[in-house]
């Protein structure tokens, strides 16, 4: 199903700049940001946090059967990235040979097209990752 326009727009700043939150009570980072710290609950104090965009590959796969709207991108590398600050996030690894990806490799955030409705539709941009230099 095509995600609604406001849904794609609403977290633009966070998606473009990898902005999440940090709990000042326990020091845990969250991406996407949370309104409630699951560890501290009522005692939590969440503030906005801009991630450095650097991290390491925690796990990865090569998606060869894509959902609607991603067909043109196959095969693409999908990974869970362990950000340096401690939060984990799902994102693609771009411009890489899938055979050379390994768990533990250093990556950094890049700004790419995430999704396109159709040639006349909205383009959604956001973070992906590439292997660090």
């Amino acid at each position: 199903m095509k995600p609604g326009l406001p849904l794609l727009w609403r977290r633009t700043k966070e998606r473009y700049n990898l902005i999440g939150s940090k709990c000042e009570s326990c020091g845990t980072h969250y991406m996407p940001g949370r309104a409630v710290c699951p560890k501290c609950r009522r005692k939590g104090k969440l503030v906005e946090h801009k991630f450095s965009g650097k991290g390491r590959i925690y796990s990865y796969t090569v998606v060869r059967v894509a959902p609607e709207g991603y067909e043109y991108f196959v095969p693409y590398v999908l990974a869970i990235i362990n950000l340096d600050e401690g939060a984990k996030i799902t994102g693609q690894i771009v411009d890489a040979d899938p055979d050379k990806i390994e768990v533990g490799q250093k990556v950094e955030m890049v700004f790419r097209k995430i999704h396109e409705d159709n040639p006349e539709g909205l383009i959604t941009y956001g973070f992906k990752f590439k292997l660090a230099d």
């Binding site: 995600p3 977290r11 996407p32 796969t61 998606v63 894509a66 999908l78 956001g126």
Partner: peptide
């Protein structure tokens, strides 16, 4: 998670 997994290109097999 529609916004933070699916939109990133995740699938269930993935």
């Amino acid at each position: 998670d529609q916004e933070w997994e699916l939109l990133q290109g995740a699938t269930f097999p993935g």
